[in-house]
Write a protein that binds this DNA or RNA. Structure first.
Lengths: 224, 224
DNA sequence: CGCATCCAATACGCTTGTGTATCGAAGTTG
DNA sequence: CAACTTCGATACACAAGCGTATTGGATGCG
């Protein structure tokens, strides 16, 4: 039945990315399979969109067959929901990690801006995935609730961070913090998108770095 | 790529656009059929995405069958290309029309902001369509060129408009005009998206109206 | 050592969707 | 009014994709 010599599937380590396969793993846990399928789904959905991607290709990319898939997820939609949950968590974690030390830098704002751009979530693939998921929320009211919930936790996590960072620079906001965050996010997204489409994906000189100081200047004033 | 034996897919003058009539018309010209199919495609693609939409549903929505479709477009991809062209033109036209009188108003900036929000291109359906097309450009390098070309004409059209509007308000830009335009566009998009997802689509109080004065203040200075 | 349990692979049915080929009904022209 | 042309409808062939049912093999446990 199995033409191939027993199985190749796993290279473990939840680390990023794909591998050709490698060592045979003696212990294949269910959760590893799930994670690999989710990793693959993130890639494939980013490249082709949720509707454009087939379960088959997700499985192939992960090194499994559809049997493995349906043994782990009820349907394609269920995969999407699981992916949504996971991505939200990952984004929060990575942003947190990247920003954590930044406030103690001499120039916190510059440090923040610099680190953000080295970050995976702003790479082409992650950008496309986020854009795709956002678009799904725009279209489908059922996904609006989870989307808004995710946004809420994002804000709750980063509004204090923003305030604190500004405070250390002796600044305070003169606009609602949520508005400030939304505006900055919009700026970053536009910048990343533009860089991707025009090809210079890693350009150090981009819309966000040019406009960030201007916008921050407009949204703050010297602290009382 | 594909030669259709029985028909030559003509690209015809745009002609009168909107399909007002409901009754079956005795004389339906080819270009009317094309336009209706494109209208339907704009809707269906906005609702379900390009990949998620079927040719069948586009035809149904337009009041035709697939026979009519394949007599007018070679493939689904050809339809997409035609739609891209048309939407770009429509967007430019509508923005131009909406903004044209605005500069002679007492408060040009307020007039501009007000009119933009009454505009179709910022309605839910048009927003979704634009987001979808943008995402396609992010994913597919082949679509990057047309996308960038469209952006260029957009800029060429509106940068002078922006300068002039600011001049009438006795202001001038202190940042690159392209950056200013990109930033404002990002702000509007974020605002529209947020309104759509949170349900209050026509809310007069939104991110853009709150932040527009702040951003404009930051990007300009009193004219020398 | 044999039994039970998981879990992923294989195989299958069925639906949906694309594109082609053909047909027929209107309109047009001599 | 008859032949021709045009264009959309019907019918069909075929591929892709989803989800189910079943099988096989590994692991854990008594």
């Amino acid at each position: 039945m199995n033409a191939m010599p027993t199985s190749r599937v796993v290279s473990e380590s939840p680390g990023p990315v794909e591998s050709g396969d490698t060592a045979d793993a003696p212990k294949r846990s269910r959760s590893v399979t799930r994670e690999r399928l989710l990793d693959a789904a993130a890639q494939v959905f980013a490249e082709q969109g949720v509707a454009g991607a087939s379960v088959e290709e997700v499985c192939e990319r992960a090194g499994y067959t559809r049997g493995a898939f349906y043994s782990n997820f009820a349907t394609k939609d269920a995969l999407l929901v699981a992916l949504l949950d996971r991505e939200e968590g990952l984004l929060l974690d990575r942003l947190s990690a990247a920003l954590d030390g930044a406030l103690s830098q001499p120039d916190p704002l510059a440090a923040v801006a610099g680190r953000l751009f080295d970050l995976q979530p702003f790479g082409a693939s992650k950008y496309a995935l986020r854009a795709e998921l956002t678009l799904l929320a725009v279209r489908d009211p059922d996904l609006a609730a989870p989307y808004l919930a995710a946004r809420r936790s994002f804000r709750e996590r980063f509004v204090p961070f923003l305030r604190e960072g500004l405070a250390q620079a002796q600044l305070e906001l003169i606009v609602p913090a949520d508005d400030a965050l939304d505006t900055l996010e919009a700026l970053f997204d536009a910048s990343v998108r533009s860089s991707i489409i025009s090809g210079d994906a890693n350009a150090r000189d981009n819309l966000a770095t040019r406009m960030l100081p201007v916008l921050l200047g407009a949204m703050t004033r010297p602290r009382a």
